[in-house]
Design a binder for these strands. Structure first.
Lengths: 165, 165
DNA sequence: TTTAACGTTCAAATATTTCTGAAAGTTTAA
DNA sequence: TTAAACTTTCAGAAATATTTGAACGTTAAA
């Protein structure tokens, strides 16, 4: 397969994957483009290569920087800002799981813990409700803990874990 | 907190969680309602309790059955169909990870493997591209394997794993 | 200062997803 | 058969999410 075709396919696949996981397509595609780029890219270059508007590129670059997976750079003698994505897959995975944990798992754990002090007349319903939510709480907390561990670990830990499985 | 308020909060939180993870809100809310229900519910009852149209409820019930997390039941002497969600959190997690693996991880692995036979004039770019995509491929395959293991495992395995971490 | 070269913002346009409700289909009992 | 009680489908409506582009900031060199 020709390089340019492969690059396109990769960018589109990354966009689709992102969309499946609740990340907008443009954001995922910009990330993919920066991942395969051999040099830092300017907003201008991203606009051109992905056929997106300036505003869209700007917004999504900021979102990517919020996620901590894209960095801004300056070249000497250039006014323009350039952007890069870390190429280390391991670091990327850790960063993404760290952020999703913070943004999505922590809030549901918070809600589940608040639901524990429920009361009411229908004893059976209340008991079942408590059982369900406390089990969900337990499970979520365990997953949360695993992800925390993972997002602070080094690659060796992960490989050791893989062996054990 | 009063039972009905808690139930509402749970349903809304579940809906939001779903939406964050690319599952539509109605589907997640129906699932939440069935999770807390003490009895199987008919489409009618779901429509009423969640204030949704017949069509919406029907569509999303089918999607939930596709995911294998909601089942249809029949009561003796009743024409109507009733629906239930399995209350076992462990089973639920396994089923969801099994489906997401099949629907979302497998396809990206497929694409990544196809990208391996890339060629082109810009040797540096091609080499970097291969490195990136093969590392992503490796990582995805490992995660895929872990999820497969998980989705076939029993709870004991998970607890043992937790201990090791 | 002024001005050119950028970056940022946001209201409006567009695209996408979800939802509704009525019509069509199906099943069962009489 | 017929008819009542349900389920399914789907075109259009509504809601939501994304994208655009032009106006507005900001910076730095002249």
């Amino acid at each position: 397969m020709e390089y340019n075709e492969a690059k396109d396919r990769f960018i589109r696949a990354w966009g689709t994957l992102g969309a499946n996981w609740g990340i907008n397509k443009a954001m995922a595609q910009i990330h993919a483009l920066l991942l395969v780029a051999t040099e830092p890219l300017s907003a201008e270059e991203i606009m051109e290569q992905l056929q997106m508007s300036r505003g869209n590129v700007n917004m999504n670059l900021r979102a990517l920087m919020d996620w901590g997976i894209v960095k801004k750079e300056h070249k000497v003698g250039e006014r323009k800002e350039f952007f890069t994505a870390g190429k280390d897959v391991w670091e990327l995975a850790k960063q993404v799981s760290r952020e999703r944990r913070r943004r999505e798992i922590e809030p549901i754990i918070q809600v589940l813990s608040e639901l524990q002090n429920v009361s009411g007349n229908d004893k059976k319903a209340v008991a079942e409700f408590k059982k369900l939510t406390s089990e969900l709480y337990e499970f979520s907390s365990q997953v949360d803990g695993m992800i925390e561990k993972f997002s602070k670990s080094d690659q060796t830990w992960f490989y050791k874990l893989l062996m054990k499985i």
